[in-house]
Amino acid sequence: MLMMDVDNAPRRASAAPDDVLIAIDQLSKTYVSASGAAVHALSRISLDIKPGEFVCVVGPSGCGKSTLLRLLAGLDDYSEGRLLLDGETVAGPSRKVGVVFQAANLLPWMTVRDNVRLPLRVGGRHAPAGDRIERLLAVTGLADFGDKYPYELSGGMQQRAGICRALARDPEILLMDEPFGALDALTRERLNLELQRIWQENRKTILLITHSISEAIFLADRVIVMSARPGRILADLHVPIPRPRSFDDIVLHPDYARLAKEVRGLLNAQEHGHD
């Protein structure tokens, strides 16, 4: 917080209290499609995320949840509203944020280790990472695969490397855009467990986009349910299930059934318009 913008300081006091890391206030995004029509991707989204929270966003496909993540990552401009990370207005990619992309998005011409180190090699100077890269590889079971190329790895391992890369700069916030969507169910559960463990160990603030209800409830402190386009927040559900969670136990938890039913009901009501 050394670089805190003086101009933002008064606003910060009113809009973003100290225990809010991500403040989304009346955020809207409209873009012009290829055919020239205006598309309302997001409509007046408001959401506060506390430091260390694990938030999952679920919604029908094309509801603008990926747009929300891109705005948070500073990859797109928003049309209206306000978006603050740690009290600072988002005006481009931030070093406080690590992004995990769909389908890993590793560079095929680099070894796994070089892919994971990439964030330290670009974008200006960085604090020495020490042995962080090696520790990340070890924690995710990739210690022996650092010198391999991405195509030599399974999909699950590739996405593990993608998560390592997002953590390379030790960011405060991890944004994950359907990171496990392309994986088979078993690999997906295993990575969910690993992600829970990584999160419990270093308490990053995580915002994860998914279309899997079970994944959202398993991982999240809060599940945000979004509507079909233009994306609005339909529900903000607290998940009071104690951690560490396991897939065997969680399905027996009464809150799991209640939340799953509620989320499914909200999403089904949305899908009706499509069928």
Partner: peptide, 12 residues
């Protein structure tokens, strides 16, 4: 997506 990756890292 690869350009997005580099942009998210503030790469020159």
């Amino acid at each position: 997506e690869r350009i997005d990756l580099m942009r998210s890292l503030s790469a020159s």
